Computed example of a mutant assay.
Amino acid sequence: MSYIPVSRRTLRRHRESERSTRRLVAALSAAAALAWLLTVMLSSAVHVGALVHTIAVVLHVLSLVLAFGAIILVDWHGFLWLIGRRGLAEIIRLDGAATPLIWGGLAGMLATGVFLNPHLTNPMTDVKLAAVLVLSLNGIMLIPLMRRLARLPTSSSFKDLTVGQRTHLLLCLVISQVCWWTAIVVGFINAEF
């Protein structure tokens, strides 16, 4: 690693950027938790007929396909970068393109979840709801790391990351996949019964 002289002004901007990222993560985490709580509360108060329920299920599944499809694509390309088969610039660019699809799909799932008449007394539903909250917060916790990765040289590999960054990335990947698959499997099991 080489020494690159950095001016005080650059250091100050970097510290301000880190602080603004922390504030953004805190605000988004609060907003995600509030949106999740609002969805759960409204779903217990709103009861719809068969037609609205069917439309909500279709839109819920389409939102799931949108968000989870984008997640799988980003995670797959991230894995390919991890083993040296993709460049960092490609991953950052793909993540930027997929982010609106992921969050749009998740917002669609929350909005349509209100009209699904969930059985909130069923422990399986609680597991699904917890998984959705955790995956939302997990995605938000990736923001600081992705911003740091975007500042690295495009030739950087997974091995060039610090141990903390590698751990953060892998932990978020595992949490994401576990929560998405849990929510999907429990959702389909609950839909059957």
Rank of each mutant, 00 (worst) to 15 (best):
V132K: 03
I140Y: 06
A191E: 02
W81Q: 04
A45M: 14
A107P: 09
S29E: 05
L80E: 11
P118W: 01
G87A: 09
D95P: 00
T99I: 08
W103G: 11
G187S: 11
V186L: 04
R9V: 15
L42Y: 00
W36C: 10
V40E: 12
C179G: 03
R15S: 11
P100Y: 06
S136F: 14
H168I: 07
E18V: 15
R22S: 12
W180R: 08
R9M: 13
I175K: 07
L116R: 00
G78V: 05
A191T: 05
L145K: 07
R22A: 13
M41K: 09
W181G: 00
N117D: 07
F193Y: 15
A107F: 07
M146W: 04
S43A: 14
V132G: 01
V186I: 12
I140S: 06
R147E: 10
G78W: 03
T125Y: 09
I72R: 03
R151N: 11
F68Q: 12
G105W: 02
H14I: 04
V52E: 08
V52S: 11
C172R: 11
I184V: 15
E90S: 14
A191F: 13
L28E: 10
L171E: 10
V163N: 03
L129Y: 14
I184L: 15
G84E: 00
T10L: 08
F79C: 01
G139V: 15
N117W: 01
G108L: 01
L82H: 08
S44T: 12
W103P: 10
V185N: 00
G78Y: 02
G164K: 00
A98N: 11
V163I: 09
R151H: 15
L34K: 00
T99Q: 14
R23K: 02
L120S: 09
R166E: 06
F79D: 02
V58F: 06
P123T: 08
I55Q: 05
S17Q: 14
A150S: 15
